[in-house]
Design a protein around this nucleic acid. Structure first.
Lengths: 205, 205
DNA sequence: TTTTTTACCGACTAAGTGGTCGGTAAAAAT
DNA sequence: ATTTTTACCGACCACTTAGTCGGTAAAAAA
């Protein structure tokens, strides 16, 4: 498992640079040669490690993109606290990171979902798997929030999850065109407004 | 203006088929030859009418995409009624149309915005112009809704517009992967929940 | 020490890519 | 009746694409 250390290192370098360029220029608008050039590697090296461009991209999804989404959007929302507070913090943080990133080209997951939609079902499925994990996590934290008395009992957790993911994807798409700070501010304000309407109200005295 | 009728007709045919294929496969993944083949036209015809692939796409944006977004999302929300009712109907209708469209590849505008983001600023700007018109219209209908007593006076119309556009773009991206009916239902439910929290409340007795 | 495997090179191929250009038949202008 | 313009054809060009393959130096195994 560790004896092929060099192998792993090279593959990883290729994946990192590959994701960078695919993210920046899009999958169909990035050639293998582009990636190889910026790594000073040859075609031989690429096809020694990967079967095809598609196979390569799948490995990127499973190794890098999964982890990105996990660390940015899934892990931060685990816990027993108020789901709305946690999600609020998580989104705020994610949007702030994007805002301060000079090289922001949108939300990785939604960019690729949209690029591969119905054009490459194999890749689409891998991407949708990540989306589903995110969704499931949001739903379960909202459900827990109900039993903990944070979330109103009448709330449809699945619906809220869908709405959250949709709005997040959308605002990330818009943010790339600049005016990020303002967009983030407006988005977060409305998110709070929305959360407020889902909050378990104190019993009326 | 009408003497070049044939010219207009051919250009229009090209634009329609072009949009069809660009929408289906993406701009970078669709060649001019693909379009020409499906029209049984030649390279000569294409470059007689258009200067370049980019010029061609810009003409599609200005002629077809603008109108699509207008008729689907902008015109339907004009009027003096309750903004929330009007937007609700408009979104419901748009999502239903998408749902019943076998060849749905997502929201045209957001697909292309995301494909050209930072990759082609000329085209991006034309697309963002459409977005801005949509935004302005949403804001103004919300403002009118305030004076008409439908929308709570404390509501930030710009924020609401951003939030609406974001969520709509996002849910359209998700819908392409199937389960549209369920997604639409959940989305509309939450949209109503959100709207409800923005509605001018009757004075407490 | 010899053999085999690993990790990589880079020339090559076949199929595109956007774009050019000389030609041409029919229609319109003269 | 002659000339010019319109709308289109399709061969061609330089270049890029994903993918193949014979070779090879260094490391590991025998």
């Amino acid at each position: 498992m560790d004896k092929n250390l060099k192998r792993m290192a090279t593959m990883h370098r290729m994946q990192v640079t590959g994701l960078e360029l695919f993210y920046k220029n899009g999958y169909y608008n990035t050639s293998i040669d582009d990636i190889l050039k910026s790594l000073s590697l040859s075609k031989g090296a690429f096809y020694y490690h990967f079967q095809s461009k598609e196979d390569f991209f799948v490995s990127i999804v499973q190794n890098l993109i999964v982890r990105k989404v996990y660390s940015m959007l899934i892990e931060p929302i685990e816990g027993k606290e108020n789901p709305f507070t946690v999600i609020d913090k998580c989104f705020e943080n994610a949007l702030e990171t994007a805002e301060h990133n000079e090289m922001d080209y949108g939300f990785v997951l939604s960019n690729f979902i949209s690029e591969f939609n119905r054009r490459n079902t194999v890749i689409s499925n891998y991407l949708m798997d990540i989306y589903k994990v995110w969704e499931v996590n949001l739903i379960s934290i909202l459900q827990k929030g109900k039993s903990d008395g944070y979330v109103d009992r009448h709330v449809d957790s699945e619906g809220v999850a869908t709405y959250l993911i949709s709005s997040y994807m959308g605002v990330r798409t818009l943010m790339v065109q600049g005016n990020c700070r303002n967009l983030r501010y407006k988005y977060m304000q409305q998110l709070r407004q929305y959360f407020n309407s889902l909050t378990q109200k104190e019993a009326v005295l």
